[in-house]
Computed example of a mutant assay.
Amino acid sequence: MTALPAFGIVLATFGFMEFWAWFMHKFVQHGPLWFLHRSHHVRHPQPVERNDLFFLIYGAISAVLFIIGDNGGRWWFWVGVGIAAYGTVYFFVHDVLIHGRLRFWKKSQNTYLRALNMAHKTHHKTIGRDGSAEFGLLWVSPKYFELARQQARNKRAKLVDFKK
């Protein structure tokens, strides 16, 4: 397979994974597999939670697609690359940046990342499986962008007042 179709498959898979993650989170993790996902909505001292099994499931699917994908000769190899790329971004954005499971990333002043964090906090306001909102990872509702911008404006205004 040539580079352009392979790259297209990777990008399409990555994009589809955002929809898939939203769908699975809303209807499966907050549905029949709540017994696994619940660990993510309650505070606990352990570094690993049952919810991490979802990461292993998608990692296994990606690995199988790599193994049977003829070193890039078959299209499903590139689907595996897209799933792995999404999983990598998911890990850094969700587990490292938002939840601080690895403490090497400081709070960002980036509007998108602040809006993303606000949306995620809205999701975690509800501890139970029902009543949550904001199930996606990378797509953020416009209202959170506006809140993040407003927060930045308020912070700048306070700095200006402080300097006077």
Rank of each mutant, 00 (worst) to 15 (best):
M1I: 12
P5E: 04
G8V: 03
I9T: 11
L11P: 01
T13R: 06
F16C: 10
M17A: 02
E18V: 08
W20Q: 12
F23V: 15
M24A: 14
K26A: 10
F27K: 13
Q29Y: 15
H30S: 05
H30T: 11
L33I: 05
S39M: 10
S39E: 09
H41D: 04
V42S: 08
R43Q: 05
F55Y: 11
L56F: 15
I57Q: 03
I57D: 01
G59A: 03
A60F: 11
S62Y: 10
V64T: 01
G73H: 14
R74D: 09
R74N: 12
W75K: 12
W75I: 11
W78A: 03
W78N: 03
V79A: 07
V81K: 01
V81G: 02
G82K: 09
I83G: 01
Y86W: 08
Y86Q: 00
T88N: 05
V89F: 11
V93S: 10
D95Y: 09
V96D: 03
V96S: 04
I98K: 05
R101E: 08
W105R: 06
W105E: 00
S108W: 07
T111H: 07
L113K: 10
A115K: 12
M118A: 14
A119G: 13
K121W: 15
K121M: 15
T122L: 09
I127Y: 04
G128Y: 11
R129A: 11
G131L: 09
A133V: 15
L137V: 15
W139K: 07
V140A: 04
V140K: 06
S141M: 14
P142D: 10
P142F: 14
P142V: 04
F145K: 08
E146A: 07
A148T: 08
R149H: 11
Q150H: 09
Q150A: 09
Q151H: 08
R153W: 08
R156M: 03
A157W: 06
V160I: 08
F162P: 00
